[in-house]
């Protein structure tokens, strides 16, 4: 009976968990650190505003286009006096990952190529019309807060416009 107590593998029971707990500690540390690596991916927050332009008796600019209002009253936009919001979306663009932009008329994609000098974004934007025909495929380098405005001139003095701005 007494020998039984002496030979009991008590040390095994203590040592094995310590080893496995050390592994557990490392695993938890790795798990906590891993999402951080993922979050460190380069992104840019971009706004896409799709709107139409026509000429009418009375000037009318949608309230949601207020940030562009000053520009829309100047040439070349002054050929129109009515601007109507069609769609608006906000996207976080990941570097070199094309992001589809849903438009009311046609479609578009935007890809963040890179961030330049910490204050500019280099973007590639493609814009297709309602028939799926490509209107423009453009890469531009723009300061954060500035705009690239794509204008597709349509018959009957109408316009289909897409404004892109990133921060």
């Amino acid at each position: 009976m007494i020998e039984r107590a002496v030979h009991r593998p008590a040390t095994d029971r203590v040592r094995r968990p310590r080893r496995s707990l050390a592994v557990l500690a490392l695993a938890i540390a790795a798990a906590l650190a891993a999402p951080r690596l993922g979050r460190a991916d380069v992104t840019a927050e971009c706004d896409f505003i799709e709107f139409s332009a026509t000429s009418g008796d009375k000037p009318a600019i949608d309230g949601e286009l207020q940030q562009l209002e000053k520009k829309l009253k100047k040439p070349p936009f002054s050929t129109w006096n009515q601007f109507k919001l069609l769609a608006r979306s906000h996207k976080a663009l990941a570097k070199k990952k094309p992001e589809p932009i849903s438009l009311k008329n046609g479609s578009a994609t935007a890809t963040l190529v890179e961030i330049v000098d910490k204050s500019k974004v280099r973007l590639t934007v493609t814009m297709d019309d309602a028939k799926g025909k490509q209107v423009a495929n453009n890469t531009a380098t723009v300061e954060a807060g500035d705009y690239v405005i794509y204008v597709h001139s349509l018959p009957r003095n109408e316009g289909h416009l897409l404004s892109v701005s990133c921060k």
């Binding site: 520009k71 100047k74 705009y147 405005i149 204008v151």
Partner: peptide, 13 residues
């Protein structure tokens, strides 16, 4: 203008 800059890409079919 004093708010921002813009590049207008005007596409005429």
């Amino acid at each position: 203008d004093d708010d921002s800059n813009a590049a207008v890409i005007w596409v005429t079919p």
